[in-house]
């Protein structure tokens, strides 16, 4: 008989995780303005770069090769980047504070909740926040006439998946951090990814070797996935993007859960 030693999904968290989301709702009841700011960042980029630069550039080759307007090219990438940024803010800075200063998690572990519940609950909250931003941004795209395919409906869940992947890995990374200075490292990874993952111009701009590297970054998976859904260029490669992000999220969550165990249950 073969025994499989796989971490069962429930070990990563349970229904009780939802209580963490409730806690965050309480917190943001006091400071909902903070949440609002997340709507504007991608919007400003879209107006500034999409329409400003777009006027100079005109059309550009889309995911299927057919020419599309620059606004249509850049809007899905901004949706992807804002999903990434939202998830990272919540899972790094805010998570670090709760872990090291507020002792929130320590007190929660005296209740039936486990580290896995905390990891999943915090991530769930980051996703809800990210989902709200994605919906808001989608609304703007509709208003600006940037909707050309029914597949665009799936862009919002795709943005959530991207948030899940980055949020989980962000928490895992944060669990290893000792000081606030360590966060500079995150910026060092996130900023180049934001600029170079095919966000603002197509990958043709790169030499072959560099292009392969970019194609392997997690943000690129999200950008290409969401852009393809937005323009309706459906191909099997999208399944690869989905699988990549899902695995990244699950691995991040498992690491986070282990680390919380080690850090909090001494």
């Amino acid at each position: 008989m073969i025994t499989l030693r796989v971490t069962p999904a429930f070990a990563l968290g349970s229904r009780r995780s939802a209580r963490l989301i409730e806690r965050n709702l309480y917190v943001y009841k006091h400071g909902w303005m903070v949440i609002l700011s997340g709507f504007f960042e991608p919007l400003f980029y879209l107006l500034g770069i999409g329409f400003g630069l777009g006027a100079l550039i005109g059309t550009i080759a889309g995911p299927g090769g057919e020419p599309i307007s620059y606004q249509l090219f850049v809007a899905p990438a901004l949706l992807a980047s804002s999903a990434m940024n939202g998830a990272i803010t919540e899972s790094t800075f805010n998570f670090f504070f709760k872990l090291n200063y507020n002792k929130t998690f320590t007190s929660i572990l005296a209740t039936p909740l486990s580290p896995g519940d905390i990891a999943l609950g915090e991530l769930g909250w980051a996703l809800i926040r990210g989902g709200l931003y994605a919906l808001g941004f989608m609304g703007v795209m509709v208003a600006l006439g940037l909707v050309v395919s029914p597949w665009v409906i799936l862009a919002v869940p795709a943005a959530l998946l991207l948030g899940f992947a980055f949020g989980a890995v962000g928490m895992a990374a944060t669990s290893f951090m000792k000081t606030w200075q360590d966060f500079d490292l995150i910026q060092l990874v996130v900023l180049p990814m934001f600029l170079f993952s095919g966000t603002f111009y197509p990958l043709d701009a790169y030499p072959d070797a560099l292009r392969v590297i970019v194609q392997l970054t997690p943000l690129y998976q999200g950008v290409d996935l969401i852009r393809s859904l937005t323009v309706g260029a459906i191909s099997p490669i999208l399944l690869f993007h989905v699988a990549y992000l899902a695995v990244m999220g699950i691995v991040g969550l498992a690491i986070t859960s282990r680390r919380l165990d080690k850090l909090l249950l001494k």
Partner: peptide, 24 residues
Amino acid sequence: PQQDTLDSELTVRENLAIYGRYFG
């Protein structure tokens, strides 16, 4: 616990309420 671990982001009453919710 020896050191208070109250939730500094919440009010007095919310501290009690959310804690009860953790217990389901």
